[in-house]
């Protein structure tokens, strides 16, 4: 449908991944950290789909479906952990959970 170079697509995927990485490193709010992880997973899936499109094989899209499944499972457990953290410490600061006291 379109003719682009694979480098352009991988560059877009890399930029999105790096933005997610910056968000994960910079933010202290744990909700934003989880959102940044979602951005990074989505960028990795974009790289897979670009690769699958380059060689006209469905394998890249299959890998994206697996990444989607993993992201859904990860986000459900992560949000449950956020709720638990908020009920215990009354904050969404990730540093509040730095001490393991059981």
């Amino acid at each position: 449908m379109i003719s682009i170079s694979i480098e352009t697509g991988l560059l877009l995927s890399g930029i999105l991944f790096l933005l997610g990485l910056i968000g994960l490193l910079v933010r202290r709010n744990i909700i934003f950290m989880l959102m940044s992880v979602e951005i990074m997973l989505n960028a990795a899936g974009l790289a897979f789909v670009i690769g699958g499109s380059r060689w006209a094989q469905p394998d890249g899209q299959v890998m994206f479906i697996f990444i989607l499944t993993m992201a859904a499972a990860e986000v459900s457990v992560g949000l449950a952990l956020i709720l638990l953290l908020y009920h215990r410490f009354k904050t969404v600061d990730a540093d509040a959970a730095s001490k393991m006291r059981g």
């Binding site: 449908m1 003719s3 170079s5 499109s53 380059r54 006209a56 469905p58 899209q61």
Partner: peptide, 18 residues
């Protein structure tokens, strides 16, 4: 930088592979 033309891979092929 060599360009490629993307071809449509529909849901049937993805499902067959999946």
């Amino acid at each position: 930088n060599e360009t490629f033309n993307s071809t449509v891979i529909n849901a049937k092929q993805v499902g067959m592979s999946l």
